[in-house]
Computed example of a mutant assay.
Amino acid sequence: GETVAVPLPVPVAGQGPSDGGGGEPDLLEMDPIAFEGLVAELFRARGMRAVTTQRSNDGGVDVEALDPDPISGGKIIVQVKRYRNTVPPSAVRDLYGTVQGAGANKGVLVTTSGFGPGSYTFANGKPLTLVSGAELVDLLGRCGLRGRLSAGAGDASVPAQRSSPDGEDGAGGDHNVLGMTWSGGVALDVCALVCRGGRVLSDDHFVFFNNPQTPEGAVRAVPGFAGDRAAVRVSFDALPAEADRVVLVAAVDPEVDPGGDLAGFTEAGIRLRDAAGVELDRLEVSDGRAGEVALVLGSFRLRSSGDWEFVAGGKGYPGGLEALVQEYGIEVA
């Protein structure tokens, strides 16, 4: 009879992707079936059973893997996207549906390019792992497998390893640090959106757990000072010319606090500091409410005088960060 958790071995066309001479193969130029075979080989190198699926009626599955770990293991559905451009959020949603339909424990989406913030936001807290091209090459190398990406592949969509928060590249010079404080034990992600009106300038201007700073470096997540539970550094003078507001939001971290809401987000405030850490002002923000998972803390808005003024927020979102960022124009899976 059939066994859902243990995929049947399916022959792979060709001999594995690491066959052949010469240097490391360009992942974007490999035969598609060989590329899927390479991904399956990567899972096997990590101690799992893994096979590629047949070409038809596979329900969107490219590789099935079985992690033998009795606690964290189980059936893993793997989809492979050999793209040069950013993988659309719809692909992440489709994978999630496939994982649920197959009764799998986890889904993994592997690509040669990268993912936007909408995809990471959707995947956060779900049994999904997104592997970008840069991460794939790194994993292959660690497991003794060969593969490279041609120069420039995926550069526009793979979050780069950026400089340390204390570096002065990009924004440089004068800046403010916005230190977040609150009572209660709820675990939160504090994020920022650089907007014109109510729309974020671009996906890269959403600063969150997988994109720690904007392209020009004007807004970035930083460790903060003593007493801060989270912090964002803003160089207002270095913001893009079209930006007229910086929106600060908080959302329950679904991995640390699954099922949590913002009822435990109380006595919240923002400590406005200068570059030296001297506290200039303390800005009050709304408490969270039961049933809400994300909250607009407030926004700094550019006035005609050229000054930036803080306007308190308070709008909550039962749909979490996913619903919040959609309202600001970010496509979510």
Rank of each mutant, 00 (worst) to 15 (best):
G172R: 06
S163C: 15
A221W: 07
M180D: 02
S157V: 13
D237E: 04
G101M: 09
G217T: 07
F236H: 07
V207A: 04
C191L: 13
V194E: 02
A171G: 14
P117G: 14
A102F: 13
S164P: 07
A134P: 08
F208W: 13
G179L: 10
A187E: 13
D204A: 15
F208M: 04
E216L: 02
T98S: 09
V207L: 00
A238F: 04
V232F: 00
V131G: 02
V234T: 01
N124A: 12
G107P: 10
H175A: 11
P165H: 11
P215M: 07
V200M: 07
G141I: 02
L145K: 01
D169F: 14
P223K: 05
A238W: 02
A218C: 05
N210P: 03
F122D: 10
L149H: 09
V186W: 09
D138I: 02
A231E: 08
Y96E: 08
D237G: 12
C191R: 12
G184T: 07
L188Y: 05
S150D: 06
V219S: 04
P165R: 13
T111G: 02
G154M: 09
F122W: 14
S150F: 00
V99F: 09
Q161N: 14
G154Q: 06
T98L: 09
E168Q: 12
G114Q: 07
P127Q: 04
G185S: 13
A104Y: 06
P212R: 10
V131E: 03
T112H: 07
P117Y: 07
N105K: 14
D189M: 05
S119K: 08
V200H: 03
V108A: 03
G224Q: 09
V219H: 01
E216T: 05
L193P: 04
T181W: 10
A221T: 14
R229Q: 15
C191D: 15
C143S: 12
L139T: 05
N210R: 15
S150K: 13
G118C: 07
D189C: 00
L149M: 03
V207M: 11
N124T: 09
G227C: 12
V99W: 05
H205N: 13
F115P: 02
Y120S: 11
D237A: 15
V99A: 08
Y120G: 08
K106G: 02
A102G: 00
G114M: 10
G172Q: 12
S150Y: 03
L130K: 06
V131D: 00
S150P: 00
D138S: 15
A102V: 12
A153M: 10
P223C: 08
R233T: 01
C143K: 08
D203N: 01
T214D: 10
A102S: 12
